[in-house]
Amino acid sequence: MQDTAELSTSKLGTKKYWDELYALELENFRQNPQDTGDCWFSDSDAEQKMIDFMVDNIGAHRITEDASVVDLGTGNGHLLFELHETEFQGKLVGIDYSEESVRLATSIAEATGVEEFVSFEQADIFSADWSPGKFDIVLDKGTLDAISLSGMKINGELDVVEVYAGVVEKILEKDGIFLITSCNFTQDELVQIIETDKLKMWKTINYPVFQFGGVQGATICSIAFVKQS
């Protein structure tokens, strides 16, 4: 398990920051429907790489054209909108704890006529009362990165990073896939955080690597885990 005590807190981990950001993006969208907000990790083309990965692996485990997909920390919903444009035509749900995020994403869905296929819900994924059902695919594009900076404790004692894998297990079907992209954690650290008796590393997405001081690395990593039982 990653020693999360060493992680610094940041405004990027606060609900206030995201509420204010998405409220601004919603106002921008209302003034200009072409402005749907920023896309995280666009400089690494991570979103398209995640979509290409799922398309390339259709037929493996529970990855099918009609697979149910949930995006944790969906933001403006861009990942789901792009996914809907591919072969994936199953239930697509975006979850975010920011009400402004949900308002923005829902407004975009309605404006583009895809609200029948892509829906959004406000929820605290760490609440014991949260019960959205199970999904074939769970996505995370930078959400663990953000919440790891919150300093929030679950039940007053457990770091959110320590319980995150349990949240994924709760909503993932057997043989389902969890695909996560991170810039805060290395591949080894993500495996330490996510792998459990049920969740096992399956495949990774390749990104350009750099070398510094004789050590090779990448600025971003994406890993797919499969729920084995």
Rank of each mutant, 00 (worst) to 15 (best):
D3W: 00
D3Y: 00
T4F: 13
T4E: 04
L7S: 09
S10H: 13
S10I: 12
L12E: 13
G13D: 04
G13R: 00
T14A: 00
K15F: 08
K16R: 15
L21D: 10
L21S: 14
Y22A: 03
L26V: 13
L26R: 06
N28T: 14
N32Q: 05
T36P: 02
W40M: 11
F41L: 03
F41P: 09
D43H: 12
S44R: 05
D45L: 12
A46E: 10
A46S: 10
E47C: 08
I51V: 13
F53H: 03
F53W: 03
M54P: 10
M54N: 08
V55C: 14
N57L: 02
G59F: 14
G59N: 07
T64I: 08
E65I: 03
D66H: 12
D66N: 14
D66Y: 11
S68Q: 01
V70G: 02
V70L: 06
G73K: 12
T74W: 12
T74N: 09
L79P: 10
F81M: 09
F81R: 13
E82S: 15
L83H: 06
T86W: 06
L92D: 00
D96L: 05
D96C: 04
E99S: 08
E100Q: 10
S101R: 05
L104N: 12
T106E: 05
T106P: 05
S107H: 12
I108E: 05
E110D: 14
G113F: 01
G113N: 01
V114Q: 04
V114H: 04
E115L: 05
F117N: 06
S119C: 11
E121L: 11
Q122R: 11
I125N: 10
I125W: 03
F126Y: 08
F126E: 01
S127L: 07
S127N: 04
S127W: 08
A128S: 13
A128R: 12
P132N: 04
K134T: 12
K134E: 11
D136S: 02
K141F: 01
K141P: 05
T143S: 04
L144F: 14
L144A: 10
A146L: 04
S148T: 05
S150E: 01
G151N: 05
M152V: 14
M152A: 15
K153I: 00
G156I: 15
E157N: 07
L158M: 13
D159S: 12
V160D: 04
V160M: 03
G166H: 11
G166Q: 11
V167M: 00
V167S: 00
E169L: 15
E169A: 12
E173R: 06
F178Q: 06
F178I: 00
T181A: 02
S182Y: 04
C183L: 11
N184P: 09
D188H: 13
D188N: 13
D188K: 14
D188I: 08
E189V: 02
L190D: 08
T196H: 06
D197P: 00
L199R: 09
M201D: 11
M201I: 14
V209S: 02
V209R: 15
Q211V: 07
Q211W: 02
Q211F: 00
F212V: 15
G213K: 03
G214T: 13
V215A: 06
I220L: 14
I220W: 15
C221G: 09
I223W: 08
F225L: 02
V226C: 10
K227I: 12
